[in-house]
Design a protein around this nucleic acid. Structure first.
Lengths: 178, 178
DNA sequence: TTTACTGTACCGTCTGGACGGTAAAGTCAA
DNA sequence: TTGACTTTACCGTCCAGACGGTACAGTAAA
């Protein structure tokens, strides 16, 4: 059971990493299984077909994001939602192999698979917009973070450490000083 | 000759569109050729192999972007570079089949293919940073636009017309009132 | 006995790419 | 201006290999 959970996770992580390094177009079940240290039969035991794997990649991304956002809500009650969201996205950016890159594989396989991400983002944005007196600041915050995530997923990140801090400070003060 | 140019363009456009609709992982030379109204042999005459096609996709994106940016420079001399850049990106967002989606195909084929985009973006950003007294504003502008483009390429665009205008006005005033 | 796999063998389809052909346009000496 | 030749811009076919997926026998732990 514990092994089963771990196997699923290893497969999902392997798929994300391979999509990132070799290109999503070359993501084959064989290569994922090999990378995950699992046989192809084992992979297909956990995910009956490739589409299921891709769907799981998107779900894991969303689930993890949601879970960590909720967890943050318990710890820091004073913070508003936008600040928590920002904190969360920035944290995922620093990870070596972010679950976000799984989205890339899913997108390449079938663009429709990102529909859940779209609705999730819209709900998130609406929630932030309800709380704020400055919608422009929230929209800016949202798009800046999307831009950062995109640059990471595309492998075209160009901002230096101090530049990133500068932007983040700027938008933090924008939503802080409403 | 004039037909030859057009054939190349048709193929490039077909590839971008297919990457967008069917997923970059399913982009085959056959499907691109069919969509472009060209035989597979004809495709391979214009692009000796798949990698060359993908490289051309990236180059076209960069070339078009550069050309239209330069052209803008001639028409509106008073404008500063950041404003022109913003104008340019926003314009490409409205097109039905944006060349940006070719980047998606290239990324899926081989992440390294986006390296030219990375250096191009860095040069662009540096140029904007040199001109401005407010680096934070320029960085915000840059990332917001990257976020918008990413949402379009990912097919997860969620902003309404008035929301988009709100953000753009906000960042325009940020770089305007330096 | 069930669960969670591994390993192997295999099938049909798709894919990149090589290759040979060809029709039309252009070049150029006689 | 005509015939010989070259170049350009493709077309259509073929093939080896990769791919997704199936089937199934075996195994080790709980």
């Amino acid at each position: 059971m514990a092994r089963g959970e771990s196997s699923r996770e290893k497969i999902l992580t392997a798929a994300s990493e391979l999509a990132m390094s070799d290109g999503a177009a070359h993501l084959s079940l064989d290569s994922v299984a090999a990378r995950a240290g699992v046989s192809k039969g084992g992979l297909l035991y956990n995910f009956p077909n490739k589409a299921a794997l891709m769907r799981a990649l998107v779900e894991r991304f969303l689930d993890e994001f949601r879970a960590e956002l909720d967890e943050k809500a318990d710890r820091l009650q004073g913070n508003d939602f936008a600040a928590r969201y920002m904190d969360q996205v920035v944290r995922t950016l620093d990870e070596k192999s972010p679950p976000s890159s799984g989205l890339l594989a899913a997108l390449a396989e079938d663009p429709c698979l990102l529909a859940p991400v779209k609705t999730f983002n819209r709900e998130l944005l609406d929630r932030m917009l309800q709380e704020t007196p400055d919608p422009g600041a929230v929209l800016t915050l949202f798009l800046v973070l999307e831009g950062m995530r995109a640059q990471q997923v595309f492998g075209t990140a160009i901002l230096g450490e101090e530049e990133r801090r500068l932007v983040l400070d700027k938008i933090a003060s924008m939503i802080g000083a409403a």
